[in-house]
Design a protein around this nucleic acid. Structure first.
Lengths: 253, 253
DNA sequence: GGTGCGACATAACATAGGTTATGGTGACGG
DNA sequence: CCGTCACCATAACCTATGTTATGTCGCACC
């Protein structure tokens, strides 16, 4: 049997005990393959699973009453999808696979067992949730207070940065398989304007584009355009582990 | 001694055992009062506490390089502030008290003890984190795909709705002590345009305004303007508790 | 009882980005 | 081999929202 998706993911952060591994293994279903453009869940459906990404890309989005769409987040290999909806009965977003992909489903209902059985895993899940929030916050800032140029550059850099850190085989971290329509819906712009902006960045030799996606040609120069600071993607795993070590339950009631 | 801030908050969701209460009590410091416009933490500082809100309003925001500001979230009595930054060493936002307020600090470093000692509390914290994310997601959609009118109406309704659910003494849930500048920075608009939009809504008898904030006059009609659906504010507490009951650790490795 | 300040109000003007439309190219299916 | 479809490209025109400026009101402070 191949190594579990989520174990690979978590090993990336910290050494898992055999018991922790066993626990995760017992819960995770084996990876499933999905074709490009498959919709895995939709608004209103009952929330029962989340997923880890083994290969490929996916995104969550929300359909608006007027027919427009807002992309909430884009997921790369190693990411956990849907932890966000842990506390809700029904899905508030749709999940779409944007390249052919392989995902591991994980039943939400048994998360409680994990929390109870392993304090390390509990804290790791909490950390992932905090990281998700940091990403949302940054996207919020992107939408609220940056120009189209900055939005595009910032978003592309974030994705490239997340790819760098993906635990799993990724060939070229500078190539992002994102269509212009998807970028538009992620950044709250029209696809026409995304095209204008990308063309500008292409003119300046910062990116190249084509069907199949966008490629970053000069990250440093994009960092300048965006004012990008990756700190929000860098969780303090060591700090958390240290905190776990010093937590001494015996001194509590 | 008065009842702990965070215990009041959590009792709102579920019955806490005496041990759980004891545990929370041992960690929480007593409430402190802060004057309007006090900044409690700033970008770059080391993350050591989070807070629960007993009275008053607060918000987190980020300062941009060009001098503009993005408000990330606004907090009302009963809210937990700063859980988001659990996984990070340094703060990525500023915390500002926007009315005179009373908050209870809670040391981040001892969260691990809570997680370990009480599975109910662990799950409640996780639920709160998920709710925070739902709020962020909705704000994201607001910024990305709604007009100024919709943004304003939606945001006002969200805050009123959150006030309704605040566990603590709130006199008038239709009155929000938010300045136009703050609304602007929360919604990614200019304060001039906020004023235009509010004036419009006032003309239509939907809100009234003045120094001291905005008052909602006709929520139903605002719901129509915004296309507001409060589902994202309604966590499935019962579902979570049920899940806790059925979790049976003995069947695990 | 000025005077400074923070919040709101309004108007004239400027522009980033939206909308609509049209065409091109390459992949894929029959 | 030819249609169809998804994606990208570009242009002309439009509008929601930003910017700058100026004024008013109330209120805290010396």
């Amino acid at each position: 049997m191949t190594t579990s998706c989520i174990i690979r993911h978590f090993q990336h952060y910290a050494e898992l005990s055999p018991e922790d591994q066993e626990l995760l293994n017992s819960l995770e279903k084996s990876p499933r393959d999905y074709a490009r453009n498959t919709v895995l869940w939709q608004q209103g459906e009952v929330t029962d699973h989340f997923y880890t990404v083994r290969h490929g890309w996916a995104c969550t989005y929300r359909n608006m009453a007027d027919g427009s769409r807002q992309v909430l987040d884009v997921y790369v290999p190693g990411d956990v999808i849907g932890l966000r909806e842990f506390a809700f009965r029904r899905r508030v977003s749709n999940l779409l696979v944007i390249t052919d992909a392989s995902l591991c489903p994980f039943p939400k209902s048994r998360l409680a067992e994990v929390f109870e059985s392993s304090k390390l895993l509990c804290n790791l899940f909490f950390m992932i949730s905090a990281r998700d929030q940091a990403i949302l916050v940054e996207r919020l800032i992107n939408l609220g207070r940056r120009t189209a140029r900055e939005k595009v550059a910032h978003f592309l850099l974030e994705m490239a940065h997340r790819l760098d850190k993906a635990c799993i085989d990724v060939h070229d971290c500078n190539h992002l398989p994102l269509t212009q329509v998807l970028l538009a819906d992620a950044l709250g712009l029209s696809s026409v304007h995304i095209n204008r902006t990308l063309s500008e960045l292409k003119q300046e030799q910062r990116v190249s584009m084509g069907p199949g996606g966008v490629t970053l040609l000069d990250r440093d120069s994009l960092v300048e355009v965006a004012g990008f600071d990756p700190e929000y993607l860098e969780e303090d795993v060591d700090g958390m582990l240290r905190m776990l070590d010093t937590a001494d339950p015996t001194q509590l009631a």
